[in-house]
Amino acid sequence: MPERTEPGRVSLRPPTVDSGHADHATIRLHDVWKEFVKRGGRVEALQAIDFVVEPNEFAAILGPSGCGKSTLLNMVAGFDRPTRGRVLVAGEPVEAPDPRRGVVFQEPALFPWYTVLDNITFGPKTLGQSPSVYRPKVETLLEQVGLQGFEGHYPAELSGGMKQRVGIARVLVMEPRVLLMDEPFGSLDAQTRSLMHELLLSVWERHHQTVLFITHDIEEALLLADSVSVMTARPGRIKERLAVEFPRPRSVELTTSPLFNELKREVLALIREESRRAATEKRA
């Protein structure tokens, strides 16, 4: 397991727009605003987001529910457009979904009429890759995510954790430089979630994709990410960004260390502040 030479130190400096090298998978959001029209009225979901994920960085975004963190991810994925501002990945504006930006959804979103194998090979086949190219990759992935022997199963025959592993494998087989994960383990039980954390850590520590990881689970964010950004309640803004500098490779045991808990307390205070503010604003 290679040590990272630079522990994911992240600065709060504003993004230097368009200076991203095209071959580096940097995610940049520059003054991004998002409004929704709801029952005739306008709802401001995101406000003046300036946010950068450096190449090979694992960035987590934490926030209270309804703060627009999924909206943010959807715009990076290309499912949604900002009302104002620019979203750039590797220096190019995001205009549509792209296999170079793999998305893992909260629900596994597998094709129920395809077997595990057909779900994983959906992407490579769509891109016209020949089986000789993708078959070895699929074999390796099946082993990595522990799905050997389940190739012929349909999603309905799998547990929640296994479905999500298929969801991850079908994205990884595309070898994306950017991974976008929208609360991918949110609907799993604690035991399974912990196993998935270890799986994701081992995968990421091998490939170092640029990751944008949305969650409301503080522990999950601190365990996995190089940086944790806390969002405000709606309208969502980035409230604070903290560097998480625990050495890698990390394991789930990290969550029991005093340092980890200190950081967790810090983040919890930030989140509490936001929830309280949201509550008083609602009352007002």
Binding site: A96, P97, D98, R101, G102, A109, F111, F122
Partner: peptide, 25 residues
């Protein structure tokens, strides 16, 4: 399911592929 359509687009599928492999089944 909108999520399946998004998943297919994210995996590089165009309209024809989506119709054949997602919408039809």
């Amino acid at each position: 399911n909108l999520l399946l359509l998004r998943a297919a687009r994210m995996l590089g599928a165009g309209q024809a592929t989506i119709l054949r492999k997602v919408v039809f089944p």
